[in-house]
Nucleic acid binder design. Sequence first.
DNA 1: ATTGACCCTATATTTACTTCAGGGTTTATA
DNA 2: TATAAACCCTGAAGTAAATATAGGGTCAAT
Lengths: 133, 133
Amino acid sequence: MKIGDIANKTGFSIETIRFYEKQNLVKNVGRHINNYRDYGDEQIAQLVFIKQCRNIGLSNKEIKILQSHLENPQSECGEVNQLIASALKKIREQLKLLHETELQLNYLNSLCNHNGASHECGIMNELRTTRHF
Amino acid sequence: MKIGDIANKTGFSIETIRFYEKQNLVKNVGRHINNYRDYGDEQIAQLVFIKQCRNIGLSNKEIKILQSHLENPQSECGEVNQLIASALKKIREQLKLLHETELQLNYLNSLCNHNGASHECGIMNELRTTRHF
DNA sequence: ATTGACCCTATATTTACTTCAGGGTTTATA
DNA sequence: TATAAACCCTGAAGTAAATATAGGGTCAAT
Ligand SMILES: [Zn+2]
Ligand SMILES: [Zn+2]
Ligand SMILES: [Zn+2]
Ligand SMILES: [Zn+2]
């Protein structure tokens, strides 16, 4: 299977798939006689796994850790638990911050909806105001 | 005022403040005779404004646009409105994605809390499972 | 034989900083 | 007065996670 085929099949871009190979997230990629990359079921499984991990916000570094547990089925999964728990914690912190950001943006958004001079703009006036100091 | 002082006063790191000067987000920085940077109220105001913008998730590029409205008080603020509205839209999209991520992570988190072999781990089994294909 | 659709490598660009290497200056103290 | 700690400088490289670009090879069809 050529790179364009597996890109279609998995939803990753061609460049991303080549990048993942360079990062050793996609492994054991074969080559055709003409030097084109050759992919099989193993690489599809790898990319599916990567996609699952991306969907829960893991970094490529963290994905590698989980891959090592895939490859060492006898390893203890404590590290896996911790990784997921810490990812969840990070996501919740991000959510909290984003919620605050949303509130503030929503407020700003309400301060001006006309087209006037910037120095009379409610948004600019609010942003110009010193806070938190 | 030296860079360490303004760093303390504004909460930005020294390196970040130098970086912002290079990016022309902080402007008109003076110099002492010994070549040390010299900051005043103008730079404090600039950094306060930058902080406000960061708090609502704006990029440095977007901050520059808002700065140009500060510097041109007669400019029409339509661009400001649009920028804030589009930032709000982006934040809401991010929130939606993060909420889904949280759900999935929370589910994964419930699948294992013991310490066993990875190939029997509920988390790993779930991640290994092909979905969305 | 030439076009268009693919594929290759290597390098550069992006964002927003952070870190590092290799210095000079100022201030406190012994 | 010497010296060490604390602070400042520049320029370059590193970070994450791709994306884009330059320059060129391969393949299928017309
Ligand atoms: Zn919510
Ligand atoms: Zn306005
Ligand atoms: Zn097993
Ligand atoms: Zn487990």
